[in-house]
C-alpha cells in the first residue's frame, strides 16, 4: 500500500478531496520492474495504470522491416496506460521497462468500481486522466509538425 502523499502532486489526483484520495490509495501499490520487463503487450486486455517514479518505459510496436519501434518513452512523473478506461479496453502498444523502473501501480478494476459507485469521485478522476492525456496529445501533435525539419524538405 502507498500513502496519499505519494499520490499528491500528480495531475491525476489533484482534484480529489482528502477522503477521495484516501479511498483511491487503497487501490495503489508500489511496484518495481527489472530492466527489459514487458509490462503489457499490444492487443491484450487492458488493465492497470502506472504512475512512474523512476526509470523509463518504452511504448513500442512491431513493424515488419523496421523491427520493434519505440514511438514514445515515459519517465518519472508520467502516467502509463489509459486504454483500461474506455472500450475496446485493449492495449494499443506494448510497454517495456528499458531500465529498472519503480512505479505506483493502480488497480484499475478497483478504481473503476470506486468510480461507478461514486460519480463524485469518478468525475475528478476522469478529469485528471483527461488532463494527462491532453498534454500527451499536444506533445504528439507538436512532433507531427516536424518543427526541426529543414525548409529544403518542404
Amino acid at each position: 500500500m502507498s500513502s496519499p502523499d505519494e499520490l499528491a502532486g500528480s495531475a491525476l489526483f489533484d482534484r480529489l478531496t482528502a477522503a477521495q484520495l484516501a479511498a483511491v490509495t487503497e487501490a495503489v501499490r508500489e511496484v518495481t520492474f527489472a530492466p527489459g520487463t514487458r509490462l503489457f503487450d499490444e492487443g491484450q486486455i487492458a488493465a492497470g495504470c502506472w504512475l512512474i517514479r523512476d526509470g523509463q518505459v518504452a511504448l513500442e510496436t512491431a513493424i515488419p522491416g523496421r523491427g520493434l519501434v519505440v514511438v514514445q518513452t515515459l519517465g518519472p512523473g508520467d502516467v502509463l496506460g489509459w486504454s483500461w478506461l474506455v472500450p475496446p479496453h485493449r492495449w494499443h502498444f506494448s510497454a517495456t521497462a528499458t531500465g529498472a523502473v519503480r512505479a505506483l501501480q493502480l488497480e484499475t478494476s478497483q478504481l473503476l468500481a470506486l468510480a461507478d459507485a461514486d460519480p463524485a469521485l469518478g468525475y475528478p478522476l476522469a478529469l485528471g486522466l483527461f488532463e494527462v492525456l491532453l498534454a500527451r496529445l499536444q506533445s504528439t501533435r507538436s512532433r507531427l509538425l516536424d518543427l526541426y525539419g529543414s525548409p529544403r524538405e518542404r
Binding site: 523496421r66 523491427g67 514511438v71 518513452t73 519517465g75 499536444q138 506533445s139 512532433r143
Partner: peptide, 23 residues
C-alpha cells in the same frame, strides 16, 4: 535529451521537448 521520431539504436527518451520539461 529527447527525440521526436522513433530511431533504431536509440535507447534514450522519445517525445517532444516539452515532455521532459514538464516533469
Amino acid at each position: 535529451l529527447t527525440i521526436d521520431q522513433p530511431a533504431a539504436g536509440w535507447d534514450g527518451a522519445v517525445g517532444f521537448v516539452t515532455e521532459p520539461l514538464a516533469q
